[in-house]
Design a protein around this nucleic acid. Structure first.
Lengths: 237, 237
DNA sequence: GCTCCTTTCTGGTCATACCAGAGTTTTTCT
DNA sequence: AGAAAAACTCTGGTATGACCAGAAAGGAGC
C-alpha cells in the first residue's frame, strides 16, 4: 500500500477551495456580488492579501469576474471557463471526472490525435522517432511501471509526438490538457492494466515507424472509440 | 484616429516583461539558475513580493521552473509552455505573430472547427441557432463594426457554437485560445475588410441552419485553407 | 570515514500600509 | 429649485517588511 505525501494547504488555498465549493454547489448563484474584500477577510479572519490573491486566482479560473473598484461577481464558469476551471472542478470532485466530461475529453483527443499523427508522420525526424521509442520501451519495461508512472509516460509520448509534428500550438494545447488526460490514463490502467495502455501506444508507434498515416489514424480512432463507447470504457473506476 | 487608453504597468508587470525579454532573447539561456529572490530585489530595487509573485507568474507561463528552497531555473518554454506562454510571446512581439505560429493556429482551428461544426449540427437546439444568428447579424450590421469588435463577435459566434455542441471541453479550449484567435481575425479584417469575415461566418451559419454537415465542414475547410495558403493569406499586415 | 546535528540560505506565506479610481453625497453657484 | 462641481467614502490594486519551514552545507563527535 502506498501513501501519498501530505501537503499542508495555505490559507489562500483554503480560501480558494471554500469559494470554489460554494460556487460549484450553487450556494453562490451566478451574478452574486461578493462582499468587499475587507469584509470577507474580517469574517474569515485572514488578511486582505489572502483574500485578494485568492480572488485573483478564482478570476483566472473563470469563477469570478472582478471589476476594479466595484466588486467581484460570480460568473458562469461553464461559459467563461478555461483549462484551469476544468482542473479546479476535477479537484473539487476529488479527482474524479463525470461521464460527460470523460466523453468530451476523449472526443477532443480524437480530433487532436488525428492532426498530431498526420503531421508527425509527415515531419518527424528519425531522432524524433527514436526518442518516441524510448517512451514506448519504458512503458513496456519490467518491472511494469505503476499506473501514474505509465500515464506520465503515455503523456510524454503524446507530447513528444505533438512536438515532432512541427506545429507550435499543438504541444501547448496538449500541455494545458495534461492533468485531465493523465487522470484518464491512470483510470484506464487501473481498469485494464498497464499492459493495455502499452499495447495501444506500441501499436500506434508501429504505424508511425511505417509512416502509415492511414493505419495510425485508424488505430487512434479505434482505441479512442473503444474507450468512449466500446469494450474499454473507463467511466467507472 | 483612435488612441488606446494607457495603462501604467505595475512593478510586477515590469519585472515579468523584463525577464520574459531576457529569456526570449536568449540572454538567459536554458538551464540558467536565477539569483536568489533577495538578491534580485536588491539589484532591481523592488520588494521581494514583487519578485516572488513575478517569478510565480513566469512559472505559470512555462518560462521558469521553481524548486522550492532551491532556486528558479530557466526552462524550455517551447517544451513546457501552455496557452499563457503563447500570449506572453505574442505580447513580447508587440501583438504580432510569426508566420509559423499563424499557420499552426489555423491548422489547429481547422481540426477543432470540424469537430465543433459536426457536433453543433447534431445537437444544437433552435434557440442555440437563433442566438448564433444574432451574432451573424451584428457582424453584418450597419454601421459596420470595427475590426476589433468584429473579431470579438466572430469569437462569440464560434464560442457559442462550441457550447451548442454539448462537448464541455471544447469551449474551454476555445476560450484559452481567445487572444491569438481574435488577433488573427482582427488582422484578417484589416486586410480584407470586415465584410469578408461576415461573409465567411454567414455562409457557415447558412450551412448550420440547413443542418448540412458536409457543406459546413467543406466551407470551414475552404476558408481556413484560403487563409493558410490561398488567396486570403494573413501573414503580412 | 561516516553519521548526525547545527547553521545558513532559500522560497512560501502573511499582515499592514498606502494608492488611485468609481460612486455617492454635499456644497455652491446660477 | 436645479445643475454643476467639489469632497468624501468605499473599493480593489499594489508595495513593503516580517516571519516560517524546508533544503543544503559545514562542522562536531564517534
Amino acid at each position: 500500500m502506498e501513501f501519498e505525501r501530505l501537503y499542508a494547504p495555505s490559507l489562500k488555498d483554503l480560501f480558494v477551495q471554500q469559494l470554489q465549493g460554494m460556487i460549484l454547489s450553487g450556494d453562490l448563484p451566478l451574478g452574486t456580488k461578493l462582499p468587499p474584500e475587507r469584509e470577507l477577510c474580517q469574517q474569515m479572519h485572514v488578511s486582505r492579501a489572502v483574500v485578494n490573491s485568492g480572488i485573483a486566482e478564482l478570476a483566472r479560473q473563470g469563477f469570478l469576474e472582478v471589476l476594479p473598484r466595484q466588486g467581484a461577481y460570480v460568473t458562469d464558469y461553464r461559459r467563461n471557463g478555461n483549462m484551469d476551471t476544468l482542473m479546479a472542478i476535477m479537484h473539487y470532485n476529488g479527482g474524479v471526472l463525470g461521464r460527460e466530461e470523460i466523453r468530451s475529453i476523449l472526443e477532443v483527443r480524437w480530433g487532436l490525435e488525428q492532426m498530431t499523427v498526420s503531421r508527425a508522420i509527415d515531419f518527424a525526424s528519425d531522432e524524433d522517432l527514436e526518442r518516441l521509442g524510448q517512451y514506448v520501451r519504458a512503458l513496456g519495461s519490467n518491472p511494469c511501471p505503476s499506473p501514474p508512472q505509465a500515464a506520465e509516460l503515455a503523456f510524454q509520448f503524446h507530447h513528444e509526438l505533438t512536438l515532432a509534428g512541427g506545429n507550435s500550438i499543438l504541444p501547448l494545447i496538449y500541455l494545458s490538457f495534461k492533468v485531465p488526460c493523465t487522470a484518464l490514463w491512470i483510470r484506464f490502467c487501473r481498469k485494464f492494466g498497464v499492459h493495455a495502455l502499452h499495447d495501444n501506444v506500441q501499436e500506434l508507434y508501429r504505424h508511425l515507424l511505417n509512416r502509415d498515416k492511414e493505419g495510425a489514424s485508424r488505430w487512434a480512432q479505434k482505441y479512442l472509440t473503444e474507450a468512449i463507447s466500446g469494450s474499454q470504457q473507463i467511466y467507472e473506476a
